[in-house]
Design a protein around this nucleic acid. Structure first.
Lengths: 149, 149
DNA sequence: GAAATAAGTCAATATGGCTGACATAAAATT
DNA sequence: AATTTTATGTCAGCCATATTGACTTATTTC
């Protein structure tokens, strides 16, 4: 049991180390990576969506998001049905950043998958899904189809 | 691939949420948890060992470690062979804190293991081991026998 | 005796969280 | 039509955690 807990610690530590180093060159931090990742993954998501995913406060998000918008990595535009919403989208510059940041992570996970085999990957997914607290968040992983909220 | 990356994010987020809430009551943060965890797991470890595991600077560690020592969660004593070293150990108070912090994590991981089954747990371990960068760190998980450094 | 190592310390800085209070615009409700 | 709720943004201040760089002390190794 303790080993499982430590595996998560070490794996997460190494999983974030490479993108962190790249982010430093941009003057960004891990928070920027998370925003770029999720906006890239689900374009047209709202600020509220992002807040629910990251589970941080609006104020914390806004500092990071504001920087990304001002520096041209993300664009915002008003929602069509609900004009209060700001729909978020990566610019080409943002997509490039996303690719750069995710490259080492994809490589690391791909290598681990390859070494462990398809059956192990299935188990990895099952256990991590079980660790995720909320059914809504688990639903994001239903066969590639993200939950709507 | 992207799903694997996000699974790690969500699982780690929820994996740390409960202990974080407990730590707040002590005026502590996640860094204190990590120190208490690893000292609990390997009593008599040195400050240098801890630095290599956590991959943070001596100055960062010292603030947290100093608090834990001053408040009686950890005791230090000089090494027998090498008297420059400070061997670390949890006090009873420290062990109690460690139990309290790890309880929700153990429960969460145990539930996930139970739901996923033994075969899935094997896969989970294999993939996470593959994600860990350093062979030395991977060696910590060799059949329950932690690496010496 | 000199050099290297383990640990500790001081100071300054950055990042990313937090709370609380408040503002604005648009949508929903009554 | 007026009121309330919601989505977003913003100001100000606080705290925890990390960093770099410089320096000290005690001890071990060469």
């Amino acid at each position: 049991m303790r080993q499982g807990i430590e595996l998560l610690f070490f794996a997460y530590r190494d999983f974030t180390a490479e993108p962190d180093a790249i982010l430093t060159q941009y003057g960004f931090g891990r928070a920027h990576h998370r925003v770029v990742h999720f906006v890239g993954r689900r374009p047209q998501m709202t600020v509220g969506d992002l807040l629910m995913i990251l589970k941080i406060t609006k104020q914390s998000l806004n500092r990071v998001l504001g920087q990304l918008v001002r520096q041209g990595f993300i664009v915002q535009h008003r929602g069509a049905q609900d004009r209060r919403q700001r729909l978020l989208e990566l610019t080409e510059k943002g997509r490039e950043l996303e690719r750069q940041l995710s490259a080492p992570q994809r490589a690391r996970v791909a290598a681990a998958y390859r070494k462990a085999g398809a059956n192990a990957v299935e188990g990895f997914r099952k256990v991590l899904l079980g660790i995720i607290a909320s059914p809504d968040d688990r639903r994001r992983f239903d066969r590639g189809k993200p939950a709507r909220r």
